[in-house]
Design a protein around this nucleic acid. Structure first.
Lengths: 308, 308
DNA sequence: CAATCTAGATAAGTTCAACTTATCTTTGGA
DNA sequence: TCCAAAGATAAGTTGAACTTATCTAGATTG
């Protein structure tokens, strides 16, 4: 079918299928039952397929009808709700933000109130997703991801972060050697997103240190957040990412026992689909988010120790 | 606004907003530009809000218009694609299945081909989600979850699984004592879904054994699948769930060094929203899924050792 | 077992939303 | 400076959508 069937016809079908009766649908749409009957007949002709079985004086959905109903219901609900929101003066811009799960849980959710406070009425939906994210299906306005995926949308590099050994001040005081050999290490399982993140093994290699067996020893955590918490508890030395540990370094819960860093192989990237780019809220959020990223990564606590 | 604005008007708005021009929209809709202009004016009157700024001989979306566009685009695309699929004879029923992430990755994805083979033309979308899942927004047809959530939809208990100590045959042979004290244990971080799953601590308590320090010792894995792999590698004894380890027990990659089990506190539950229940595909998938669950949990490998 | 009720189909006529053509205004660009 | 092109508007036309009225045939009931 080159062109769509009649929208009103589809609407009548949707109401009738949902209600299970033409009369009920007619009432819902404030038209006569005869109109519903005709609309649906027209749609069936246009689509070349029966949507209802007429059994006696009942109607029962055909397989094709059953298949259409939920999708049409969702579509018409969306049309209805967006129309109602916009026409009833008090619509709030909706902003769908997607970031890697680890950021959604900690870093970003802590800072989000800052944006809301400065920007006012916005409905923000914060999603923690692994790549790839379905921009169109979920109407995502802005996606922060590790590395450039999404060549099909405008993407900009924001910042290239690094990982640092960090530990509790108490543990740091007890460190004699500065190559970390023999210390309890906290390993982070970065998950699928961070498959290419540096491990302790990489860090030792880059530093030219043979860690012996100690590169395998110690605790492991399945999130960067958990790894940081373990480090703060003094259980060992974690390889923490700048953006996540800047705060703890600043307020002294963590220190950097040695200064060597390992840069991440990929920058963090911001992807904003064309359709969202012109929205004011999106532009404002983009600026704010970049500012926050840079502030976190280039925090004085990290800078002052920078050892390149 | 009590009732929706004109659907054709919204459609015209959507096309014009997307194309950035009334003339282009008119061409797309195969009507005259004057018609587009009038339709949009009508919608604006019905909604009591301008959707376009008329600047010279250009049109620019207002904030309200920008807000509406993506959601309308998605809705009309959905209407178009469902209509096209159903009217163009070869529509395939679409089945959206949601299960806990651990099942989506392993157990279910391995078995799914069986259903497709027996049932024929179906488009299955398999999602790994944590509870709660958005039934309506994602049009989920069937959800398998641990424990009964979703009182608002018809839900049935399927099976109550249990966890068992399992290990590689080689390791089993080396075991002298049958209380597992002193053996390397593999701890599983069940994630948010399984917050109430039995841990080694629980298992020892239930068995009336004081594990001493050994309940904390050993490896940990952040998924049941990873824990099983570690156990198969002979690195320790894992507490594995029946449904996941039945296969490995049957083909001898794993054995049960001791027979005590710990029942899960909740049964696995199947939730099917009203709208999906009447679909043939859904009913068929439900039957198949229940069958597969029972077969896995009540596999001979588990049964023959059952120690209640 | 009529008598009645109700859901849906159909016919015929009506109406108004949607569409066309024609004309006007503005302006961006050659 | 003049034209081409985009949008607004007016006036008239068309047909999709709607109404009322009537028909059919299962359900329901006294």
């Amino acid at each position: 079918m080159a062109t769509l069937p009649s929208l009103k016809g589809l609407q009548a079908f949707e109401a009738a299928a949902r209600a299970g009766s033409f009369v009920a649908a007619a009432e819902e749409l404030s038209i006569s039952a005869a109109a519903v009957s005709q609309l649906i007949r027209t749609v069936e002709e246009q689509m070349g397929r029966k949507l209802f079985h007429r059994v006696n004086r009942r109607v029962v959905l055909t397989e094709a009808g059953v298949e259409m109903l939920p999708r049409l219901t969702m579509a018409f609900q969306e049309i209805g709700s967006v129309s109602r929101e916009v026409s009833g003066g008090a619509f709030r811009p909706r902003l769908v933000v997607s970031v890697p799960p680890s950021m959604a849980m900690g870093w970003l959710s802590q800072r989000l109130s800052g944006f809301v406070a400065s920007h006012g009425a916005v409905d923000i939906s914060l999603r923690g997703d692994d790549d790839p994210v379905p921009f169109d299906r979920e109407l995502i306005d802005i996606r922060l991801s590790y590395g450039p995926h999404y060549r099909e949308h405008p993407t900009e590099d924001i910042v290239r972060d690094a990982v640092y050994p960090v530990c509790a001040p108490a543990l740091s005081g007890a460190i004699k050697r500065d190559d970390l050999v023999g210390l309890p290490l906290i390993h982070t399982d970065w998950g699928p997103t961070g498959a290419s993140f540096p491990s302790w093994r990489n860090w030792f290699e880059a530093a030219g240190i043979d860690p012996g067996r100690s590169a395998r020893r110690g605790l492991s955590a399945n999130s960067s957040r958990a790894a940081l918490d373990l480090a703060i508890s003094g259980l060992g030395v974690a390889l923490a990412q700048g953006i996540y540990c800047a705060q703890a370094l600043e307020d002294g819960r963590l220190v950097r026992p040695v200064l060597r860093t390992a840069e991440l192989r990929q920058p963090y990237c911001l992807t904003i689909p064309e359709r969202s780019a012109r929205r004011d809220v999106v532009a404002a959020f983009r600026d704010w988010l970049i500012e926050e990223c840079l502030r976190s990564v280039e925090s004085p606590a990290l800078r002052s120790h920078d050892s390149s």
